[in-house]
Amino acid sequence: MDIRPSIYRIALVSMVVASLLSCNAQKGKKQGEHALRVSRDELYADSAMAANMQSLKQIFYSMPSPLETALILKRAGAGYNGSLLNSIDNVSRYTTIRSMALNLGIYSTDLSYASLFDQTQTTISYMAATKKMAEGLGILNAIDEQTIRHLEENVNNRDVIMETIPETFLNTNSILEEDDRVAVGSIILVGGWVEGLYIATSLVADPTKADKEFVCRIIDQKFSIESVIKLLEQNSSNEDVKAVFDDVLEIKQVFDQMQIVTSDIEIIPDSSTNVTTLRAQNTTTVNPTLFAELKRRVATMRTKYTS
């Protein structure tokens, strides 16, 4: 007897059952979704395992998203300079997983930067570029035609733009995590972060003459680079991550020579606004030579990623 048709039938039934479970999972809380029950006996099969449960704490390193990066730039006083964006004509150059992931991050920061400065046509063009990168990475549903159409139809509606952009990032990140491709997600974030650093440093010709607050926000990236390193270390078995990691270390070497002295934090709640202020002061020393070296290394890295 040929057993193959039966096996296929069983496999098909398993997949249908699982897909039905997935559909049910999306129907809302009433059906008690998002819950898994595990018996204590199964979980704590022995005391050693119970001890391990305590040590297996999940750690996340959250980097600034492309939208946050662009917002930091704007809030610190950056102006808009469209010539700094990675040209969308370069899209066809990116054919490897690494280059597509990096440039998905780069274009995402560019589109966030353009959108915050109300550059509507550029925003739509760069959304299309991110769509191409996402498709190349096999993230087909993250940014679809409907998203682009929705942006075009609401080109003057800032609320819609500000809702759509983070939603596409969220879709991209969550789909990658779902597909067990967290390493690719980390490369995208690094691409976005480097682009923010590139735009910021390019806007400063001379740190001694530039707006002090703006320069301080750039040097504040010393805090974020620690998260960048940790995030990449979590995915260090991936060859593409290894390559990016080496580049990030080049930048870290410069940040390591920069000093930020932090004060204690004073917590000031405001019951009328429900917004708590964390009062503190950082003292940042800017060395023009080091700043120039940072700018040079960031530009080299960004050229490597976009060419």
């Binding site: 704490k57 750690i59 620690e226």
Partner: peptide
Amino acid sequence: YIHDGNYNAAILTEGEEAELFKTFYAGQE
């Protein structure tokens, strides 16, 4: 407030902890 676009989520069991490290930038709410 506008969601930043990042996705941080995990399946946790009773008694479990998770930690997230993040930099928050001056002047931002």
